[in-house]
Write a protein that binds this DNA or RNA. Structure first.
Length: 671
DNA sequence: GGTAACTGGGTTTTT
DNA sequence: CCCAGTTACC
């Protein structure tokens, strides 16, 4: 049986215990960074289980799959779960939504074989349709397909009309308002017709299920408790979902920190966190301010940069010894910054700090380019998280789309992509061939010979090989074998298409290997789409115990994580804060919160880097530089929490005066 | 008419 | 480094 004293032994303090043992009324846990909210939430789940609430009557909505798994595993450990015992339901909003949409596909008018589109595929679909809506041409600037998807998604996620979204966020697109509205209508219709669901649709459909007269209360009634993590990052749709799940607020627990709201660009708004407290008068608010993670010197900086506008200002404090003040390293330029970081990593390693306990956190994925080069040169292993995703690599997309074809051969976009992989088939021929295959009809198989005959002579062998291979793959029974067969189809195409085919096929081999243990290929693909591996290394499974590497991550992907030592490069206006965000006060405020998140990842040591000379990217070709003193985050209060270190004199010297001309003779090579 | 190979300009963050 | 626009080739 659950022993509450066991939880105390883990070091819960009064505030955490108050959160864990709260009754049924709506509960908001305002949790500053590093204040042990995961422990509190875990303890709450354990406490609920101990009170006799069935595990299947608890729903845990978290921001990432990792957070959900982590919490569920810890809760199970707390109550000493015997194997086979039911675990609480949990996952990301999108993953849980997918489960419900799959279970009630029929009621939603969807076939069981519906497909989840990733944003890249959604952009491809936009591209396919834009031609019919006067959104192509070179005379005026046209929104890119990714921009179209973004704008569309923002309308959905904030439930604001397109007119308003364009006026506020995409003013330069306003001339295209009518065309975009028409395109978006066509986009929705096309998704509907092809049983294609993008990420937003998953939320829309789940919300629709919950809003249904009979089904809604039934679904909500399955749970006694709903716990939502990172509530400052929810958007309007997610708020609606939570409200439908807990209409009276009974059994609702949300955890959040408005100072860590960093997903405004995705339609999130921290105001939802405050609205909640006003919605039900009997809401209990528990504040977690005692930080278990960082030394006080790091927290002093965090408190100084914490945005002032938040209503319930949390001030973090620590019982640990203060530790060294965070350093601000002012260095000559970005290469010097990279060298300084590599120096710091090696120096700490010699002191006994494992590489895995050190991280370089960046605003944008490419900010670590030079650091990566420097680490490679010095043979310091690293792993990069965030930024370009594995799933976005062309060959992985090829694999995923082809695998989808097995169960849903009616999807024109997939055929289009697969056909274009063949040498000699471009957009025009692919379109003609897709028309011949008639993917809308019952079976595409009878049309295959026609399609092969219509293809250019040079590609017929390859094309018929592809089609036969697909047919063979459809006959395979297990997911693993099907995945293998798909790779078999793709292998010759990849070999011809990509110069670095060997590397890409290596990736696909690993992907296929992970499919071996699954029973449902389509479900596995949907999961892969919703929760893609965060770095290529993740596919290889859990890393070895003795494997050691520095972590490079975007700050967004680093949320919720911590390291002993953290390096923050590129603290220069235009880089961090990003120049894209400098235009509006709201954008700048979000950058500041992002900075707060970055600072609070550090347990013991924190170094900020401000290169003085940065290529001004608009003129990068001219080798013109802008002189940037530092980021505007480093104002008075922040500076007083910092130790300043000047690295400027360490600049590489070039011999003065004219050099002897150097001649290089390549003639011997051609003899 | 259609494809492949080249060139030059632009680049945030993620479920 | 990826995309779009252009050109050269079938």
């Amino acid at each position: 049986m659950f022993d509450l004293a066991g939880a105390w032994d883990e070091g819960l303090d009064d505030a955490q215990i108050a959160a864990a043992t709260h009754g049924d009324g709506p509960l908001i846990v305002m949790a500053g960074a590093g204040t042990g909210k995961t422990r509190a939430l875990t303890a709450r789940v354990a406490w609920l289980l101990e009170r006799g609430i069935g595990a299947e009557r608890i729903l845990l909505l978290t921001f990432t799959r990792r957070a959900a798994d982590d919490m569920l595993a810890r809760a199970s450990a707390l109550i000493g779960a015997e194997p086979g015992r039911r675990r609480p339901r949990g996952g990301t909003f999108h993953a849980v939504a997918h489960r419900y949409v799959a279970a009630y596909a029929g009621s939603l008018g969807l076939p069981d074989s519906f497909t989840v589109l990733d944003p890249g595929e959604a952009a491809d679909l936009m591209d396919l349709l834009r031609g019919q809506h006067a959104l192509v041409g070179t005379k005026v600037r046209m929104p890119r397909s990714a921009t179209l998807v973004e704008a569309y998604s923002r309308c959905i996620n904030t439930q604001r009309p397109l007119r308003e979204v364009l006026a506020v966020d995409y003013p330069w697109c306003e001339p295209h308002l009518d065309a975009m509205a028409a395109l978006f209508r066509a986009f929705t219709a096309r998704k509907r017709a092809g049983a294609l669901l993008d990420f937003d649709d998953l939320l829309l459909y789940w919300r629709a299920l919950l809003g249904h007269e009979e089904l809604g209360p039934h679904l909500a009634g399955r749970f006694d408790h709903v716990l939502v993590d990172e509530y400052q990052d929810v958007n309007t749709l997610q708020v609606d979902i939570v409200r439908s799940l807990r209409p009276e607020g009974r059994g609702l627990t949300v955890v959040g920190d408005d100072a860590q709201a960093i997903y405004g660009f995705r339609g999130a708004d921290a105001r939802h966190l405050h609205d909640l407290a006003e919605q039900w008068p009997d809401t209990t608010v528990v504040r977690l301010e005692r930080n278990f993670r960082s030394r006080q010197a790091v927290l002093d900086l965090a408190n100084a940069v914490r945005p002032a506008e938040d209503g319930n200002r949390l001030v973090l404090y620590s019982d640990r010894p203060p530790g060294p003040r965070p350093r601000l390293v002012r260095c000559h330029d970005a290469p010097a910054e990279a060298r300084a970081i590599a120096d710091g990593v090696l120096e700490a390693h010699e002191r006994g700090v494992a590489l895995r306990d050190q991280a370089v956190l960046v605003r944008a994925a490419h900010h670590s380019d030079l650091v990566e080069i420097e680490l490679s040169v010095r043979r310091i292993p690293y792993r990069k998280y965030g930024g370009l995703r594995f799933l976005e690599a062309a060959h992985v997309k090829d694999f995923v789309t082809t695998a989808r074809l097995l169960d849903n051969p009616h999807d024109e976009i997939v055929w289009f992509r697969l056909l274009r992989l063949h040498q000699g088939i471009g957009p025009a021929r692919a379109r003609a061939l897709v028309a011949m295959l008639q993917p809308g009809t019952d079976d595409v198989l009878p049309h295959w010979p026609d399609a092969v005959a219509a293809a250019p002579a040079a590609t017929r062998t390859a094309l018929s090989g592809t089609l036969d291979g697909l047919d063979g793959a459809r006959g395979r029974t297990t997911a693993g074998r099907r995945a293998e067969a798909v790779l078999g189809v793709l292998r010759p195409l990849v070999e011809v298409r990509y110069p670095d085919a060997a590397v890409r096929l290596g990736d696909l081999d690993r992907l296929v290997a992970t499919a071996a243990g699954v029973d449902d290929l389509q479900g596995w693909l949907a999961e892969l789409t919703l929760d893609p591996p965060r770095s290529t290394g993740d596919l290889a499974g859990p890393p070895h115990i003795d494997e050691d590497y520095v972590v490079i991550s975007t700050i967004h992907s680093a949320k919720g994580l911590e390291w002993s030592i953290v390096h923050l490069p590129h603290l220069v206006d235009g880089a961090f804060p990003s120049d894209m965000a400098l235009k509006s006060p709201a954008g700048l405020a979000e950058e500041r919160r992002l900075f707060y998140v970055a600072v609070t990842r550090a347990r013991d040591e924190l170094s900020l880097y401000a290169p003085l000379r940065m290529p001004h990217h608009r003129h990068a070709r001219d080798d013109r530089y802008s002189i940037a003193p530092a980021s505007r985050f480093l104002d008075g209060p922040a500076m007083s929490a910092l130790e300043i270190e000047e690295l400027i004199p360490v600049r590489d010297r070039v011999p003065a005066g004219p050099l002897t001309p150097i001649e290089i003779d390549l003639a011997p090579l051609w003899r």
